[in-house]
Amino acid sequence: MLYSEDLLGRQNADGGWSYFRGGSWTEPTCYALLALAASGTGHAAEVRRGMSWLQRCQRADGGFAPRESVQESTWVTALTLLLPPDTQGFDRRRAEAWTVDQTGRESGWVFRLRLWMLGADSSGESMSFDGWPWYPGAAAWVGPTALSVLALQKLAKRGEPANRSDLKKRIDQGVGYLLARRCHDGGWNHGSTRSLGYDSDSYPETTGLALLALHGVDDPKVTEGLARGEQQLAVCPSSEGVSWLRMGLGAHGRARLTPAAGIAGDGAKAPAAPRGVMEIALAALADSAHAGKNPFLDL
């Protein structure tokens, strides 16, 4: 409830939300709308204004721009598909089609032919699955892949997709991508697990997000990821990291700590209070998930 009031107080005059201050962006607007929907307290007028702003970011190709002034559809399109059907007022079919069509550039035959001609190995597990890029024409990464999987899973659960087999194929590909991009410590980072022979460490926020997208997946890699997520949650100083971990672990029935109990472990720095719109909205969404209604999965 307090989070909702905070979010409402930060809504811009145009109906959208910024990250901290200034102009509206699609990402914080989607999370704010999702948090307001999860709060179940109405705010119909504010939600309508938010949706009205969001509609203006849908482009002719069906995708959404990260803000009105950007003339390119990006990964934020997946976020719009996470919104509950009764808060939507845009062309969902075209947004869905745009999302299903996106793959990382490394998935393309041109890139794979180039690797083959250079004698490079493109057969490794991490190159075997089609994930999603942040921006069209770039490689796939963990963040947009996890959010796109969540969005398509939600559509499939609602029975909405225009082409169910195509949707299932992309969800399976995305899950495969996430399992293949796990770091050596069991968690997830932005998506680069190893470079020039050196292993990279995972981050709390991406571990939580990946675990959320892998809900219901029975795989030893997920079990190891959960163990890593619990380790991270015990010492995570980041509000955003804590929220994603709570939702990710909770989706597997593993979240046991409430925010009031204090999350930092012995000697660890307590997580910072939520600062910007993203952190406030994610904290609200994590609370909702903890209370039994995960807005990424249930709404």
Binding site: W134, A138, A139, H190
Partner: peptide, 13 residues
Amino acid sequence: GGVYGWPKNVLHW
């Protein structure tokens, strides 16, 4: 990153 993502992979390509 708000436009191009994390990492800013368009620059690499």
